[in-house]
């Protein structure tokens, strides 16, 4: 565990260091994104997956390809899921990281690199 900093668990929105880069990769079928980068707080590599889901009956019309949703735009809120133990983390907490979260911008094309806002 060479790069990991054993910080205390603390839920907070954090700023991202200017030299940090996050890979935002869309899957081949376009149904999920994978965001990979270093946690700004504990410096562990975080892999965060965001899948396309449904909240109700589809509004698509006849014949439209249902398997490739519209590209994700804006940003993805990523939280640390480093998997390391962090002190002060409540046992009932669903977190598996240090508690930090941050935004990663996503380009309209669906893949690329971005620095946190």
């Amino acid at each position: 565990m060479p790069d990991h900093a054993s910080t205390d668990f603390h839920e907070h929105e954090t700023a991202v260091r200017p030299d940090d880069r996050f890979d935002v990769v869309r899957s081949d079928d376009g149904r999920w994104y994978t965001v990979t980068g270093l946690c700004p707080t504990c410096r562990a590599t975080v892999v965060f997956r965001v899948a396309y889901g449904v909240l109700g009956p589809s509004k698509r019309l006849w014949g439209r390809d249902p398997h490739r949703p519209e590209p994700l735009t804006g940003s993805v809120t990523v939280f640390c899921q480093c998997g390391y133990p962090h002190a002060e983390r409540p046992p009932e907490s669903p977190d598996t990281g240090c508690g930090a979260f941050w935004d990663v911008p996503v380009s309209g094309t669906g893949a690329g690199q971005g620095a946190a806002s």
Partner: peptide, 13 residues
């Protein structure tokens, strides 16, 4: 200021 709701929705997602 930390907006925990943003994280909660990310966790819900």
């Amino acid at each position: 200021m930390t907006d925990l709701a943003k994280k909660r929705f990310a966790q819900l997602g």
